[in-house]
Design a protein around this nucleic acid. Structure first.
Lengths: 243, 243
DNA sequence: ATAGTAAATACATTATGCATAATAATAGTC
DNA sequence: GACTATTATTATGCATAATGTATTTACTAT
C-alpha cells in the first residue's frame, strides 16, 4: 500500500486517548479527534481516512469510527464515497472566505435580533466582556470573543443558534491565535457592533457584524495561507485531491 | 482468503447465484425512510425511535440504522441523547419560520451573486423556466420551482450551495403541494427576483429573494398548521416531548 | 402504605466476524 | 517492452454478538 497520503511513516494518527476509564460517547471522541487533525492541517485534503488506523490510535472499534466519519462527512470536512471510504475534503481559500461570508449573514441576523431583543442586563454583560478584551493571552481573548458572540446569539431563535454552532465548528482557524494586530481590529469591530446594539439599531448591528465576519474570514484565510494550509507540501502548488 | 495450497484446476465450486440482492447505501435508505416519516408527521415530535422496529421494517441491521440516526440528529430532525437513544425533535412554528428566514439570508446571498455573475444564457434559461410556470400540476410546478432556484444558486460558491442543499432537505413542506393561491404569489416573487437579476441589481435580487423565502416560510408554516403538524393529536394542544 | 433500595429487564452502544467491492500485483500476450 | 487480463490482497460495509447503562419493577423496612 503506502499510497500517496496514507499513513505508514509520518503517521498522523498519533495522540493516544487521555485515559482508559471514563469513556463517554466514543463516536464524539473520534469525531473531535479527526476533526482536529483536519482543521490543524495534519491530514491534508485528499488523504484517505484509514479506519483501522484511527481505531488503533484511539483503541476503539470501527462502529464509533464509522459514525464519526458520517458526521464529519455531513459537516463537509470529509468526502464519503460509497464503497471507497472517506477522504479529507478540499478546502480552498475560496471555501474559507465563503464560509465566513455565510457566517456573516447568519450572525448578522442574530445581531439584528439582539439589537431588538437583548435586555439591559445582557447589554451590560456585553460591555463587561468588551471592556476586558485586552492583554495578549490568546486563550483568554479567544474565550472572551466566544462569550461576546454567545451573548448576542442568545437573542436568536433556536434554529439560528443551531446553525451558528454548526458553522462555528466546521471551519479551521479560531483554533489558532489570529495574526498580530487582529485583536486590535476585532476590538474595534466589537465596539461598533456593541454600539449599534446599544443604539437599538438592527440594521446597523447586522452590517457591523457582517463586516466583522467578512474581515475575520480574510484574516483566517491569510493566517491559513501563511501556515501553508492551502499548499501541497510535496508539489509546493495548491493541494489537490489525492490520486 | 484461500491463502495457500488451494485447488487450482478442477474447481467444483460454481459461481453463486448472481441474484441475491444488490442494495445501495443502506444508511441513506434508512435516513430517507425515517426522514420521510418525520417530515410527513407520521412520527410525532418526542416519539422515541425504536432501532429494532426500523430494522424489522426495512430488513436491515443496526449498523446502517445508527448511521442514519446520527445523520438525522445532525440535521436537527432528531434529538440524540447519549445513552437514551433518539427521539423526534420538536418542530414548532417558530422553528419553521426561523428556518425559512435563514434560508432567506443564504439564498439572498446567492441571488445577489447571481445578479452579478450569471451570464446571458443562464438568465435566458431563468426566463424560460419562469415562463413555463403555469398550470396546476403540482409535480411539474415543484420541479420548475426547484430548477429556477438551482440556476440562481449556480452563481454561488461551493460552500453556499452546500449549505443551501442542507437547508432544503431539513425542513418539512415542499414535500407537499403548497396552499391554493400560493403558486400565483410565487410567480410574482420569481418575477421580481428575475427582474432584479436582469437589471444586474445585487441588492434588489437579495431583498426580493429574502422576501420570497420569508413568505414561503409563512405559507409553509400555515400549511403545516392546517395539517395539524404542530398540534398533539391526543391533547389537541401543542405537541410536547413524549414523557 | 410509602419510600428507599436492589434486582431484573430493556435497550443503546461497542466489538467482532464475514462477505464483497475496489485496488494492487502478477502473469500473459501482442 | 508496453499493455491487457487475471489473480491476490486490502479494506469497506453490513450483520451479529457482547457489553454496559438506564429504567422499571419488586421487595423490604420504616
Amino acid at each position: 500500500m503506502n499510497v500517496e497520503g496514507t499513513l505508514d511513516q509520518d503517521d498522523p494518527y498519533v495522540a493516544a486517548p487521555p485515559s482508559s476509564r471514563r469513556r463517554g460517547v466514543l463516536a464524539d471522541e473520534v469525531a473531535g479527534y479527526v476533526r482536529q487533525l483536519i482543521l490543524t492541517g495534519s491530514l491534508r485534503p485528499g488523504t484517505k481516512i484509514d479506519q483501522d488506523a484511527v481505531g488503533r490510535a484511539l483503541d476503539v472499534s470501527r462502529s464509533p469510527i464509522r459514525e464519526a466519519l458520517v458526521v464529519l462527512g455531513h459537516e463537509g470536512l470529509l468526502d464519503l464515497t460509497p464503497r471507497r471510504g472517506a477522504s479529507v475534503a478540499q478546502l480552498r481559500r475560496e471555501d474559507i472566505i465563503d464560509h465566513y461570508e455565510l457566517f456573516g449573514v447568519v450572525s448578522g441576523r442574530a445581531a439584528a435580533m439582539a439589537a431588538e431583543l437583548l435586555d439591559e442586563d445582557q447589554i451590560r454583560e456585553l460591555n463587561e466582556l468588551h471592556s476586558r478584551f485586552t492583554g495578549d493571552d490568546q486563550e483568554v481573548l479567544q474565550q472572551l470573543n466566544h462569550d461576546f458572540h454567545r451573548v448576542i446569539n442568545l437573542a436568536a431563535p433556536r434554529r439560528t443558534r443551531w446553525l451558528l454552532r454548526h458553522l462555528e465548528r466546521t471551519v479551521p482557524a479560531n483554533y489558532y491565535e489570529f495574526a498580530d494586530g487582529w485583536n486590535h481590529r476585532a476590538v474595534e469591530h466589537h465596539a461598533s457592533i456593541l454600539e449599534a446594539i446599544t443604539r437599538r439599531d438592527p440594521e446597523g448591528a447586522r452590517s457591523a457584524m457582517e463586516g466583522h465576519l467578512h474581515e475575520s474570514g480574510v484574516a483566517a484565510a491569510d493566517q491559513l495561507e501563511e501556515r501553508g494550509f492551502f499548499t501541497d507540501p510535496d508539489t509546493g502548488g495548491p493541494a489537490e485531491a489525492g490520486q
